[in-house]
Design a protein around this nucleic acid. Sequence first.
DNA 1: GATGAATGAGCCTTCATTCAT
DNA 2: CATGAATGAAGGCTCATTCAT
Lengths: 197, 197, 197, 197
Amino acid sequence: MSPLNEEQQLQIRDERREQIMSAALKVFARRGIIGTKMSMIAAEAEISHGLLYHYFTSKEELFTTLVEKAMLASDEAMQMVYKLPGSPIDKIRALTQDMMDEGGTDYFLLIHQARTSDGVPEKVVELMERYSMDNYVKQLRALFREGQEAGELAEGDLDEMIASYLSVLSGLMVLNVQKIGGYQLPKVDVLLRMITP
Amino acid sequence: MSPLNEEQQLQIRDERREQIMSAALKVFARRGIIGTKMSMIAAEAEISHGLLYHYFTSKEELFTTLVEKAMLASDEAMQMVYKLPGSPIDKIRALTQDMMDEGGTDYFLLIHQARTSDGVPEKVVELMERYSMDNYVKQLRALFREGQEAGELAEGDLDEMIASYLSVLSGLMVLNVQKIGGYQLPKVDVLLRMITP
Amino acid sequence: MSPLNEEQQLQIRDERREQIMSAALKVFARRGIIGTKMSMIAAEAEISHGLLYHYFTSKEELFTTLVEKAMLASDEAMQMVYKLPGSPIDKIRALTQDMMDEGGTDYFLLIHQARTSDGVPEKVVELMERYSMDNYVKQLRALFREGQEAGELAEGDLDEMIASYLSVLSGLMVLNVQKIGGYQLPKVDVLLRMITP
Amino acid sequence: MSPLNEEQQLQIRDERREQIMSAALKVFARRGIIGTKMSMIAAEAEISHGLLYHYFTSKEELFTTLVEKAMLASDEAMQMVYKLPGSPIDKIRALTQDMMDEGGTDYFLLIHQARTSDGVPEKVVELMERYSMDNYVKQLRALFREGQEAGELAEGDLDEMIASYLSVLSGLMVLNVQKIGGYQLPKVDVLLRMITP
DNA sequence: GATGAATGAGCCTTCATTCAT
DNA sequence: CATGAATGAAGGCTCATTCAT
């Protein structure tokens, strides 16, 4: 009866899930959970809104799933920096550049939405508590220490420097959400001056 | 014959209006126009939701009124910088400090909301178009030029420097919306390094 | 202490009541009970809306009071016809003319509203049941019989003739509520043709 | 892949639209736009109130749509009279009979509501201005002239006669809104006496 | 008595979610 | 699996009514 074998079924299912999550990420990242309507996600994914509920039981679940994925992805991205070529400052420059670029920003924005918006599911709130900015700080500590030791970075409290710098980058990413408004993205070298001697 | 004299009536009305606007500012600044329920404003102002409509005809009108007020206030704040004592860099430092502080941030956040959210009244959209970031740049140009001439500021394109710096400050103000999340506000001197030689 | 003696107090009270009832009649007659806001009545009476509640406990009570008064008044008007000079047809002509005129129509319209609108208080519904069109028919029967006997009126069932004629007049009164719409009020003699030989 | 073919979908949509419009016509005709609650229409159509908004964006749009349809329908009805058999007076008699009958009265009442109520959408007001009673007069002029020339109608100003007659019929239709109240619908021949020699 | 600020029930409308097909 | 019709909880707003002054 079934025209497709089980494996194919599963593959289709997975593809659909990806398609929906990708669409949802785009919308949630820009508009937050409250500002996002399920119909917007359906439109972005080019499927009917009814179909969303075959893959996710609710808007909350979809959001939560994305946040979890985003946390993994941002961890990974942060680790990636160590594999980049060049001196510590080169790596930091590359990381900064990445964060200012269009791509990959969405996961970061989603986390920001999760952190600062209302109407966020309880589960996400818990995730956020366990997974604060400190996490990033911890991951970058080795890199920044190395830079400091190499004299490429300014002196001073390491964790504070990292957290401050990440905050600045975060703020810029959030602002840049929408091209409107005439905000100006600073050049990477200008940003780096904050942490270089 | 009148139970309260006219002056008293007017005073009550004015006080209530202020009370409502103050409450609304707080909520709108953090949650945007869509995320804000009239009942939230009523609760914050400790009045019934019905009473809101004695003073403002709609959520839109309330929001618009606040945005107009915010634009005036931020203009004023920007002008104030010239009256501060000290050299140009001192003034910029003071301005930066002000923007990082609690007070007066709400107006700024409100304008950010007005600039980037959906569901913003048509009139506000028009206001925003006429009143872009360029406005602030224009207002600060004389101060920054003076600083550059005094050798207190880095060389380079003036307008770009101002816009970039304001974007960084804006981003930080937006992040700082809620104390949660563990973002770290950079020290003022760290921020100033971006624009000093 | 009291600057007015009791009698004067009472007189003022009565005058205010009249003032309110007159205003309310005007508004209710044209807009029905649902379409009428208490604030409209207050505005028409040139008093504050709060004061209405010193004289009438509710919109319903005000409406009901007026309907009762209207029933008495329309009875009286119907009796008046017998006191007019001239032959039966002259009296009917005068009655018709009166009903087409501006004045005194309001009570009639109010009764129509009470008869046909929703949201009418239970008590009014009961009044209407006890006080149907038949009442008017009964009151005019003698006059019409006289006219028929004098050969001034057409032959045929008396009650049906009266009821039909009154329905036509009622319909015209209702239409004429508002001057807009370009309805044309027929000349009295045209209307009389329906009941003359 | 589609669960229902396109034709079926369209058919359901059309049926529902008709069902809603029919229910709304009934309620609006009797209660006007203010007195009608969307829940009443939903109840009359035996659907949930939410579903109304899948088919019409607002109460206003629903009302306006119906008024437009009513204007077309009443035009058509007025034209139909010329296709009836018999002499002019026969046709007028048939038209009169039709208007007194149950059927099709609702459209007429709706137009009356649109003409005389408050809270009517701006667009409807414009429609009404362009589409006054004169329109009907114009459409019936040829018929009445013919009748006059055949000596079947009374002498006198043609347009006035038509407008007056229509006003009487309109008034009766409005009264007959609800069977309650004991108004008596005059016999057609009685009404015709107003315009016959 | 008189005023108008204040309250809250109720209606219009939106949108997350369900379900027949 | 896929669609979109259908439902109903919840939010914006109005207005009858109350009450402090």
